[in-house]
């Protein structure tokens, strides 16, 4: 029943992302072109910059849910774009598909009593399974309560649902609701601030918001400049690998100062 509309929404959101956050090969990060080293033709660097991106774990209704939730957790507002525009849903998809989603480096043997809060993560479910179950159950709640899925609700209603999960007032079947909410919030913040190589923090939206320079430069000459802002174009891992920045023999990029800098 919700399949066709879900798929439509998914397609719409993918198209929207192409326009906002996911640059097509030709349009990759204008900012980099400004400080590409003179020897590297900008066009050749750009053609390798943006491999095709596709969802690997989340289903279309799940993408719609995560995008809608991310847009409320870190909203687009007067300070600039938020988690949705930063591609956090795609980031979460990639994380869930990989080692994190399957708890590859974590202890997975039972038995699985719930334990005390001090004992931490004790769910038999992996993050993959937590998202799958909790999104479905959250949407069931929204349908019962509002007659719509989460992504179809008005922003104020979405906030109400998120608060209900955050405060543990909405009961989910498979996991404690706060457990799911904490995971979703942590992953959203990770996707907003992690290096763009993971698919989130598009156009370094998160880093630009807080003034974080990304891959570090040599700061020996700056560390004792007291109360002097250090405003630079942030540098990502891909920027360095693709020689879009100039660097020293240890790989530290030379940060390009923004004109606002004094």
């Amino acid at each position: 029943m919700d399949q066709p509309s879900g798929r439509r929404r998914f397609l719409k959101s993918v198209i929207a992302m192409g326009a906002v956050g996911l640059p097509a090969p030709g349009q990759a990060d204008e900012a980099h072109a400004q400080h590409a080293p003179p020897g590297v033709p900008a066009a050749s660097a750009q053609t390798s910059a943006a491999p095709p991106r596709a969802y690997m774990f989340l289903t279309p209704p799940e993408v719609a849910f995560v995008e809608a939730a991310a847009a409320r957790l870190i909203p687009a507002d007067e300070l600039g774009p938020g988690a949705k525009e930063a591609g956090v849903a795609y980031f979460i998809d990639q994380q869930l598909f990989g080692a994190y989603g399957t708890m590859a480096k974590k202890y997975r043997q039972g038995p699985w009593p719930e334990g005390t809060p001090q004992q931490g993560y004790q769910s038999p479910l992996t993050p993959q399974e937590v998202y799958r179950a909790a999104i479905r159950e959250s949407n069931l709640y929204c349908r019962r309560q509002y007659g719509k899925t989460f992504d179809e609700l008005a922003p104020e209603q979405q906030d109400q649902v998120l608060r209900g999960l955050d405060e543990g007032k909405i009961a989910l079947e498979s996991v404690p609701s706060r457990f799911f909410f904490d995971l979703l919030l942590a992953n959203t913040q990770e996707g907003f601030f992690a290096d763009p190589v993971y698919g989130g923090n598009r156009n370094k939206i998160g880093w630009k918001l807080v003034g974080f320079p990304g891959v570090p430069a040599v700061y020996t000459d700056h560390i004792e400049k007291y109360n002097v802002p250090y405003l630079v174009e942030p540098v990502s891992i891909a920027d360095v690998q693709q020689n879009l920045t100039q660097g020293d023999e240890h790989g530290h990029p030379q940060h390009v100062r923004l004109s606002r800098d004094r």
Partner: peptide
């Protein structure tokens, strides 16, 4: 080596340099 060695997600959140708990961990109680 840079740039990959200074990746906050990989090293701080996903514990690249730390013990693989899938093989061995501890149990805990207060």
């Amino acid at each position: 080596a840079l740039p990959n060695a200074h990746d906050e997600l990989k090293y701080v959140r996903r514990h690249e340099l730390m013990q693989d708990l899938s093989r061995e961990t501890i149990t805990f109680r207060n």
